[in-house]
């Protein structure tokens, strides 16, 4: 009787563990599934001249490198936007702190065409930014807004955090709270470790 009890306990435990592990594997498989995307480099720029992109360029940023997808911190901003300028040093600090952990940072400007070539480099110089300044130049920004997130209505600044699989894990419209963003990044990096 004792023996059969221990056998049953062993069998049940094995069954239980296998079920748990199968479940967890499925969840992880979903989280780390490779994205089907192209590459966008965010290396230090040789110039502060904004890199002009269109809808296709934004699509590539969102798709990233399919061979080795990194998590992406994507910020939409403009020099004419006060909270955008205020939060930018925080984002740069976060970028520097998480660069070694493969977090890509892309800042896309919605600056007006008449002053983008002067205002953006001036601001980047002022805040000592060493990331590529992107400038989204499209006549109607709605398709771009909807491509990034169907629930975003276009207010800036808006900051998005996508994990390596392209899942949106954090979003904030208005000046981002650095501590909240850091917590979201940590949570994301720890979850996919």
């Amino acid at each position: 009787m004792k023996r059969s009890n221990s056998q049953c306990a062993l069998l049940c435990t094995a069954l239980f563990l296998s079920l748990i592990l199968t479940g967890r594997q499925a969840i992880f498989a979903q989280e780390v599934a490779p994205s089907k995307q192209n590459s966008v480099k965010t290396a230090a720029p040789a110039t502060l001249k904004p890199l002009e992109i269109d809808l296709e360029g934004l699509k590539k940023i969102l798709q990233r490198d399919k061979s080795s997808p990194h998590p992406l911190l994507l910020n939409f901003w403009a020099t004419w936007c006060d909270p955008c300028r205020e939060e930018f040093p925080d984002l740069l600090k976060i970028e520097a702190d998480y660069r070694k952990r493969n977090l890509d940072f892309v800042a896309v400007s919605f600056d007006f065409s008449e002053d983008v070539q002067t205002a953006v480099p001036e601001f980047f110089k002022q805040v000592k930014a060493d990331v590529t300044p992107y400038w989204l130049n499209i006549p109607d920004p709605e398709p771009a807004i909807k491509m990034v997130d169907p629930n975003w209505t276009g207010g800036i600044p808006t900051t998005f955090l996508f994990d390596a699989s392209g899942n949106l894990v954090f979003k904030h419209t208005g000046r981002v709270h650095a501590a909240e963003l850091r917590a979201a990044i940590d949570k994301m990096l720890n979850a996919t470790r």
């Binding site: 967890r24 969840i27 994990d163 894990v169």
Partner: peptide, 21 residues
């Protein structure tokens, strides 16, 4: 098992911090 299922459905990657303010 119920707990595992619940944790899979709970706000995970798309949870806290996402969505309109």
């Amino acid at each position: 098992l119920l707990a595992v299922t619940a944790s899979a459905q709970a706000p995970g990657p798309n949870g806290a911090g996402v969505g309109p303010s």
